[in-house]
Amino acid sequence: MTATLVVGLDGHGSGERAVAYAKRMAELIGDCNLLIVYIIEWSPYTFQTPEENAERHKRREEEIETALKRVVDPTVKALEKDGITAKGIVRHGHVADALNAISLEEKAEQIIVGRSTASGIAERIFGSSTAKLVMSASIPVTVVG
């Protein structure tokens, strides 16, 4: 049976460390797929102007394309080059909720995320997302420091 590990990326160094750890685990497991996931922080309960609404679909496509091009695809390619089976997903939502939802959909064994070392607001947001994920995930979570 193939094991699936979900790896949460944040576009920073901590995500790279999570990928490196996941890669090591995949090599140890042998029959293992890595799912590289990038969540674009988004809430359905924000307030927008009519013009922003009208352009939302276009913006969403652009956001997904940018995330794929800059973060997800290069990681997937690098892993495949090293002989690891990997797939990329970009989705909008709350980091913790979306990572958990994808893990359940894909019947993953484990979620691997990095602990952000970035300072300021980014750390607060990602830091709390990691904590929330650990608290609420339905499957085991590994936080890579």
């Binding site: 359905p44 309960y45 307030f47 989705r91 979306a98």
Partner: peptide, 23 residues
């Protein structure tokens, strides 16, 4: 959002359309 497909996340939600129209 009970009937919203999670795959459509990131699009304009029912809440957002309602809030915009209300404002």
């Amino acid at each position: 959002g009970d009937y919203s497909d999670p795959n459509d996340a990131g699009e304009v939600s029912h809440f957002q359309a309602l809030a915009t129209a209300l404002s």
